[in-house]
Simulated assay, not measured.
Amino acid sequence: MDRRILKTQKSVMKAFAELLAEKDFNQITINEIADRADVSRGTVYLHYIDKFDLLDKCMDNYFNKLFETCMPLDDTNRLPSKYLIIHAFEYLEQHASIYTALLNNKGVPAFRKRMSAAIQESLGELVDSRGIDQEMSREVLIQFLSSAIVGVLEWWIINSLPIPAADIVKQLWSLLERFQVIPYFSDSN
């Protein structure tokens, strides 16, 4: 893709993310996005159908960045590896402003839902590959783990990272071990 197009899209996306941090999605206009990105309104429409399309592409972009950065290239070590969870929280800590905007903005409930679905999918693959106790429901285990991880992550981001990433993961991991969830997956730290 042409570097100028990428630069324009990056500028529009950055402007949109900044506006999301400042105000509710429903209050943001294409004119504001264009002004902030220092492009014309028509340029925004050349790349995005409307602000909903921009929101979808923004969520895709930041969601993909999170998972590409935090997931291994091979399938040998998937969630809930302690290392991967620490890596994810550290990445979120470094990029807190955009993820806070995506999780905290009342007009963007889809980001949390997308994150939860991706974690559930990864956990499902992990459960299928390693198995679980026959008395435990696969669906309940996956829902429990994903709700715990996403819930803690969301609380942590929305409350302005009150605990360092390594400490919050240590506490989350300890809780998972305490309720004997971790032995089903690995002994990895």
Rank of each mutant, 00 (worst) to 15 (best):
D2A: 05
R3W: 04
L6C: 03
K7Q: 11
Q9A: 04
V12D: 11
K14F: 09
F16L: 12
E18Y: 07
E18W: 09
E18K: 15
L20V: 03
A21H: 14
K23Y: 09
K23E: 09
D24S: 15
F25W: 08
N26P: 02
I28K: 04
I30L: 09
I30K: 10
I30V: 14
E32K: 10
I33A: 04
A34Y: 05
A34R: 12
D35M: 06
A37Q: 13
D38I: 00
V39M: 09
G42P: 01
G42F: 00
V44F: 01
L46Y: 11
H47V: 00
Y48H: 09
I49H: 11
F52N: 07
F52S: 05
D53V: 09
K57P: 05
C58E: 03
F63C: 00
F63N: 05
F63G: 03
N64Y: 07
N64D: 12
N64A: 07
E68F: 04
P72E: 07
D74I: 02
T76N: 15
T76V: 11
S81T: 11
S81G: 09
K82P: 14
I86D: 07
H87P: 05
A88F: 00
A88V: 02
E90K: 13
Y91C: 13
L92Y: 00
L92C: 03
Q94M: 13
H95F: 01
H95I: 15
S97W: 14
I98F: 14
I98G: 09
T100M: 04
N105Q: 14
K106Q: 11
G107P: 11
P109N: 03
R112P: 01
M115A: 15
A117I: 02
A118I: 03
E121T: 12
L123S: 04
L126F: 03
D128R: 13
S129K: 15
D133Q: 09
Q134D: 09
M136C: 05
R138P: 15
R138N: 10
E139N: 09
I142G: 08
I142E: 13
Q143V: 03
S146G: 01
I149Q: 00
V150M: 02
V152K: 12
V152S: 08
V152A: 03
E154L: 08
I157L: 12
S160R: 14
L161F: 00
L161T: 12
L161S: 15
I163F: 01
P164F: 04
A165V: 05
A166T: 15
D167I: 05
D167K: 10
I168L: 00
S174A: 15
L176A: 07
Q180G: 04
V181D: 06
P183H: 03
Y184H: 15
Y184I: 02
D187C: 03
